[in-house]
């Protein structure tokens, strides 16, 4: 299947990714070719149906929900990594204009 520039625009918006016009053209071509290749998986299901089992089933496990404090040096390192901060607070752009 081939994909349109409008679809690329929509996917880029969903993925929060700004693309240049040349990138859009390139990805339209690349992704159309990849989808053409991967569509072969549709074929094997014409004969069989199989239930989807959650990825790597049986090896998930849970632990008790216990609040544990972060180590001081780890906390400092995390705060230090903030791109912009006020005191120990992480500063971000306004959600609305």
């Amino acid at each position: 299947m081939s994909i349109t520039i409008e679809q690329i625009d929509h996917l880029a918006h969903l993925a929060r990714l700004e693309l240049t016009p040349s990138e859009k053209k390139k990805y339209q071509k690349d992704i159309s070719a990849i989808l053409e290749y991967v569509k072969k998986i549709q074929k094997i299901h014409e004969k069989t149906t199989i239930a989807v089992i959650p990825a790597q089933a049986g090896i998930q496990s849970t632990r008790d929900d216990i609040v544990a404090n972060c180590q001081t040096d780890e906390r400092e390192a995390i705060i230090k990594a903030f791109p912009e901060k006020e005191g120990n607070l992480n500063k971000v752009k306004a959600v609305f204009d």
Binding site: I3, Q7, I8, L11, A12, L14, A15, L17, L19, E23, Y27, D30, I31, I34, L35
Partner: peptide, 9 residues
């Protein structure tokens, strides 16, 4: 970027 778009699709 290519794989992010493909996966989003």
């Amino acid at each position: 970027k290519r794989r992010i778009i493909l996966g989003t699709f």
